[in-house]
Each structure stands twice: as structure tokens, then as C-alpha cells.
Design a protein around this nucleic acid. Structure first.
Length: 440
RNA sequence: GCUGGGGUAGCUUAGUGGAUAGAGCAUCAGGCUGUAAACCUGAAGGUUGUGGGUUCGAGUCCCACCCCUGGCG
């Protein structure tokens, strides 16, 4: 079990590697489809194999609530349960602490529009205990809250109360049979104040250590004794914060590192040298990319060279290039599958894909009503080989289930294939040529 | 022919004589980055069947006509 860098570029941190796990090797850079509830929505493991998926991501929080980690364990672990024999990485539930908590209260996202700037600057989000209680009560009946012990959840399924502690999270991940487990962390939002960020990061350190202690202690007894544990670099859009976190994580003896957080700026974390002449929409995109790219630049060089580095939740097309260039090896992202179900289908530069349209077309648009062409004429996926845009549009408008399946197949094939090409370009030392073809 | 019900957005409809006639679906366009997401926003769309009357004011009340629909001849 371990990670080997097989090729590194001179001009950047981009590299190709091989990650060994109990369920086989993973060639990096790699894109990991998200299968939150023990399924990559609408696709079978056979589909995933055919489009070249090497490893998928499952979710502790969802599987713990339903069907329950013990049930999965009894039925032979998640691999057997869902019929996927290749590696699985599991998220710790840290993201749900955020998406059911601060994300709602702060009205931010994983990758946020610039908030706290311009008109929004007046908006003040304090985070005293009283405000927190009040905000949670008023704004979100179903939420998570952070305590020293862990994350308290009210189940989104039945409202029941649960505590996901670092120990519980690891217990669930080991029971599920994850090849790679993640420590429990708390995502920070751009609207968290410096005081709260400090408090939270100190707590996350304690959670990460508790996760690791429990992991080390339980691993041998576990039916999953070859599992690996990744640490998480948390933080906000601030160089010192991120570098400090990277230094801390680097010293804890993990098998790898995931880089997480909510990427955006605010009155607290406004570090911006924004190019002028950008439209409003371009600014939004620029800020999101800038926060992600800068963060990777700050963090990656500090982390051990021989650790696999995982960008949590990142995976838009430009991110793949920019993050690989900055030394990232692994990606997971809901974008390909969620966008697919919502009718946004990826297109390559040769088919009109570009930064400005986010390399997507909206299949619902009426221009595709009679379009006989495949989604992307340069794509070799099953969907593009067999169906027209007009047919796909029809399926979406009719809300036929096949729409979601064909679209997911295409988007995932597209991203996985692109990531594979990126890997090949590193091996062939043509990475920048490829990047230029896509992001010129 | 007699009699009852009904005509409001493409469809289904809400609407005590009082604000710019609302909504759902459909249409159109945005958005979506460790999945509370086959989701969320927004826009467009109206000669209230036609014509007249009462009234400061009518989708609403009155009259005539037209159309749909049920019942009886």
C-alpha cells in the first residue's frame, strides 16, 4: 500500500503516480466519481468500469443513516454490497456538517460567489453562540451543529438526532470497508470570522488526531486492515492560515492529504488582486478559480512529496488542469453527475466548449430541438456514439429516466477521459500543449 | 325548443364590487464544484367569450348574443 510518483514535470508540480490500495491500483491524476449513497446516481458499476472509473467516493453520513454501517458490514462491505470491486474512498461527513450547517446559515456554497464585497459588504454575519442558535433555529429546521465532541446532526430523513464524532466517523468508514478513509473536519466558510476560524482549526486538529488515534487503534481488529487514512488541510482564503494548516497536517503521519474548504472571498478573507476588465460573471468565475488555485499553490509544496494529494470536491474542467499543474493527484466532484441530471452536458473545445460556456451545453435549450448531432462529436462515449442532441433533449423534456443515465454516462466519461489524457500528457511531457488546447 | 352548469395565459384553474387579475403545469432562459440536488432561480405569456348597461370603480352585478357541456323534449 502506498503511493509512487512515476513521472514529474520540470516546469510545474504536475506529476503522474500510482496509488496502491487493497482493491487495486489507481493511476493518478485521477477523477473519482461521487457515489454518495452506495451508487453513482443512475449508473451501474459495469458502466463505471466501461467509462474507465478507477475509484469512487462514498459518503459516511448518508450510509450511516441509511442503510447503516452495520448492515453494510454484515453484507460483506460496501464493495460487495454495491457490486464495485475497485477502490473506494469515503468522505468523513465533514462536508455535511457544512452543507447542513454553515452553508445554509451563511448562504454560501462549496465554491462561492464573492460575498462580503460591494453591496454585500454591509452584510454582517457574526457567529456568536447566540447568533448561531438563533440562525440555526430560524433559517434551517434540519441542520448540523458543531460541538467539541463532533457534529450533531438532525437526520434529513427522519429528524432523529445523531452525533458524528471523529471516532464514529472512522468506525463507520472502516465498517463500510473504505480503502481510503478521511479524518473528520469542519469546513470553513468565507464568512467565518478570523476568531472563529482559529477556534475551528484548533478543534479540527483535535478531531483529526482523534480520527487517527481511533483509526490506528481499530485498524488491526478491523476486517478492513489495509485501509489508509488521509488528513485534511482546512482553511480559508488566506496564505498564512493555509500554510500553517499544511505544515500541521504534514507532521501527522497520514497516508495522504485532502485539501478542503469552501472557496470564496468575503470581508474577512478578501485577498484579491483581481484583474480589471472582467465582467460581473467573469469575476465570479475568476474569484472561484483564483481561490482554489492559490490555495493549492500555498499548500501542496508544504505537504510531503510522496503523499497523494486530493482536492476535495473539485472537478470542473479548468480546475483539473490548474490543480494538476499545482501538484494535485486526486479529484472527486459531484459536478459531472449532478450537471448531467440537470441537463448540462460537457463539450470539448472542438465542439464549442470554452471557459465562457464552462464547457457545457444546456440540452433543454430549444436550439437542440432538431439537432441530429451527438452531444459532442469528438466524444467516444456510448451516448455520443448512439444518440442525437435532439433525442437527449426529448428525453429530458419527457423526464424519461434514460435521460439521466445517458447524460451521466457522457459527463463522467468526458471528465474521466480528460483526466486520463492529462495523465498521459504528463508522461509524454505534453501537458502544457494539452492545457493550451483546452484553456487558451 | 325548454332548462341547469360553465367560458379568466398554450392547458388546468383562483379570484367578498376596490391596489398592477394570482397560481400550478407547459414554454423560454440562467445557475449548479468532498450530493438534503432527476434540483434551484428567473422571464415571457391576459382585449377575463362578444356587445351593451349599472357604478367613482365590473373578472365579479344586470341585459342580449355566441360557444362548450349536462338533463328533458
Amino acid at each position: 500500500m502506498g503511493f509512487t510518483v512515476v513521472k514529474k514535470l520540470d516546469k510545474s508540480l504536475a506529476r503522474a503516480g500510482i496509488l496502491e490500495t487493497a482493491h487495486g491500483v489507481v493511476e493518478t491524476p485521477v477523477f473519482m466519481p461521487v457515489g454518495t449513497q452506495g451508487t453513482v446516481k443512475s449508473l451501474t458499476p459495469q458502466d463505471l468500469g466501461q467509462i474507465g472509473a478507477q475509484i469512487i467516493l462514498g459518503n459516511t453520513y448518508h450510509l450511516y443513516l441509511r442503510p447503516g454501517a452495520n448492515i453494510i458490514k454484515e453484507l460483506g462491505g460496501l464493495h460487495r454490497f454495491m457490486g464495485w470491486a475497485k477502490p473506494i474512498i469515503t468522505d468523513s461527513g465533514g462536508f455535511q456538517a457544512f452543507s447542513l450547517g454553515a452553508m445554509i446559515v451563511h448562504e454560501v456554497k462549496k465554491v462561492s460567489k464573492p460575498s462580503g464585497l460591494g453591496e454585500d459588504r454591509k452584510r454582517k454575519v457574526t457567529w456568536t453562540k447566540e447568533d448561531k442558535e438563533k440562525a440555526l433555529k430560524e433559517k434551517a429546521p434540519l441542520v448540523s451543529r458543531i460541538t467539541e465532541e463532533g457534529v450533531e446532526f438532525l437526520s434529513h430523513l427522519d429528524g432523529s438526532k445523531h452525533l458524528l464524532s471523529p471516532e464514529k466517523s472512522i468506525e463507520v468508514q472502516l465498517n463500510i470497508g473504505a480503502d481510503i478513509c478521511l479524518v473528520l473536519d469542519e469546513l470553513l466558510s468565507p464568512l467565518h470570522s478570523p476568531e472563529y476560524v482559529k477556534e475551528s482549526l484548533e478543534r479540527t486538529h483535535r478531531w483529526e488526531l482523534r480520527s487517527k488515534t481511533y483509526f490506528d487503534q481499530e485498524l488491526e481488529k478491523s476486517t478492513n486492515s489495509q485501509a489508509q487514512l488521509f488528513g485534511i488541510v482546512q482553511g480559508v482564503y488566506d496564505q498564512k492560515v493555509r500554510e500553517d494548516e499544511a505544515r500541521w497536517v504534514a507532521e501527522q503521519g497520514f497516508s495522504g492529504a485532502s485539501i478542503g474548504g469552501s472557496f470564496g472571498v468575503s470581508q474577512y478573507w478578501p485577498r484579491l488582486n483581481r484583474p480589471k476588465n472582467l465582467s460581473g460573471r467573469e469575476t465570479v468565475d475568476w474569484v472561484a478559480s483564483e481561490a482554489i488555485n492559490q490555495t493549492m499553490e500555498w499548500v501542496v509544496p508544504i505537504l510531503p512529496h510522496d503523499w497523494p494529494k486530493h482536492a476535495l470536491g473539485i472537478g470542473e474542467i479548468w480546475d483539473l488542469f490548474e490543480c494538476v499543474e499545482r501538484g494535485i493527484d486526486m479529484f472527486d466532484c459531484v459536478a459531472p453527475t449532478r450537471l448531467a441530471r440537470n441537463g448540462a452536458l460537457y463539450i470539448s473545445p472542438k465542439s464549442g466548449g470554452a471557459r465562457k460556456n464552462k464547457f457545457r451545453l444546456n440540452i433543454y435549450n430549444s436550439v437542440y430541438k432538431t439537432d441530429p448531432n451527438p452531444v459532442d462529436a469528438h466524444c467516444s462515449c456510448y451516448t455520443c456514439q448512439n444518440f442525437s442532441r435532439a433525442y437527449l433533449r426529448h428525453l429530458f423534456l419527457a423526464q424519461e429516466l434514460l435521460a439521466y443515465r445517458l447524460a451521466s454516462l457522457h459527463n463522467l466519461h468526458f471528465i474521466i477521459n480528460l483526466t486520463r489524457k492529462i495523465r498521459e500528457s504528463i508522461l509524454a511531457e505534453s501537458f502544457f500543449t494539452l492545457k493550451n488546447e483546452w484553456l487558451s
